[in-house]
């Protein structure tokens, strides 16, 4: 879209999480504030994996953090189970927080280096004072086993003794300790080797089913996202371009930016010759975004209209939405 709109929001069945008109600004000292997330609306349904995809600087991580209220939200609402969490006071927010957890790209630095793995995974239970001592220990063991680690061997070791893939398993176990409803994964596999990446993705899928999670999966890798998500939302410079199911989005993208993204993904097969629509240049600065459609400066199909009017999200085929004045066929 680099456009706006809420045409894609449905009310039934009631979503587990509903984000409406979310705006997140960062002040940048001298100049005007930068809108990292500019009027984004989305819904997460029960049991869904919603992928948020885009290039560096498109605001995807800020959006994830905004949903968890880890950064200050400028305007808009984040409604979880009928309650707008932006309106909650500190204590009420704290009570809601266990329902949301996050795992990060750099798993090693997101684990406290001074604590043993057992302590790291157990700490949320201690803080919330849940269960008896022995129940807590049993819960830690259960979680470690479910992410493919052997409790006896790992519990008394510290994060630096583990590889990146193992640390990501520990992060997942820790995130699930309080049995959250929503797990936000911010590039969880992008610093891992491909063979390990598949292991972690499979664990996430398993955990999702076992613990009844809904996932928001933030990534720049369309191939990964296609393999695991139920819907994909494409972001560009703080706006939504397209929302669709993975097969539709990857096989017949309607937005020109999505098309460019899909064509740029390398395919590990020399016999496949893909029509490569290589995007020229780089995204413009978010401090001074283009008028109208934010993608128009790099779009081959841009017209006068794109400069003057911001495209709104509209439905193309049932459940699939695009924000473009001149969508591809």
């Amino acid at each position: 879209m680099a456009g706006t709109g809420k045409a894609h929001l449905r009310d039934s069945p009631a979503p587990i999480l509903r984000v409406e008109n979310l705006v997140i600004e960062y002040s940048s000292g001298r100049s005007d504030p930068v809108q990292a997330v500019s009027n984004i609306s989305l819904e997460l349904h029960d049991g869904e994996t919603l992928a948020i995809i885009g290039e560096s600087g498109c605001g995807k991580s800020t959006l994830g953090k905004g949903i968890l209220k880890l950064v200050d939200v400028t305007s808009g609402s984040v409604v979880f189970n009928g309650v707008d969490i932006n309106t909650l006071d500190k204590e009420a927010l704290r009570q809601v927080r266990p329902n949301f957890q996050m795992i990060f790209q750099d798993s090693i630095s997101s684990l406290d280096p001074h604590l043993t793995v057992g302590r790291i995974v157990r700490q949320p239970l201690d803080i919330w004072n849940r269960g008896e001592e022995s129940e807590r220990d049993a819960k830690v063991d259960e979680l470690l086993v479910s992410v493919g680690l052997e409790p006896k061997r790992v519990k008394n070791r510290k994060p630096h003794e583990f590889s990146g893939g193992q640390c990501q398993r520990i992060s997942i176990a820790r995130a699930l300790t309080l049995e959250p409803k929503v797990l936000i994964c911010d590039e969880p596999v992008s610093s891992l080797d491909v063979s390990i990446q598949a292991q972690i993705l499979n664990i996430l899928q398993e955990m999702k089913v076992r613990y009844g999670l809904s996932l928001i999966f933030i990534s720049h890798d369309l191939a990964v996202v296609r393999a695991i998500s139920t819907r994909i939302l494409v972001m560009y410079l703080g706006k939504v371009c397209e929302i669709a199911d993975p097969d539709t989005l990857c096989d017949s993208p309607r937005h020109h930016y999505t098309h460019a993204l899909v064509s740029s993904v390398p395919v590990p097969d020399p016999t496949v010759h893909r029509h490569s629509a290589i995007l020229q240049g780089e995204p413009p600065s978010p401090t001074n975004p283009p008028s109208g459609c934010r993608f128009r400066t790099r779009c081959a199909a841009a017209t006068e209209l794109c400069a003057t009017e911001e495209p709104q999200l509209r439905e193309t085929t049932p459940g699939n939405y695009v924000a473009c004045h001149h969508p591809r066929d």
């Binding site: 990446q197 890798d221 191939a223 296609r226 393999a227 097969d247 990857c250 395919v267 496949v272 893909r274």
Partner: peptide, 9 residues
């Protein structure tokens, strides 16, 4: 083990 963008999931 490589996920592919040109394949159905």
């Amino acid at each position: 083990s490589i996920p592919r963008v040109d394949r159905k999931r």
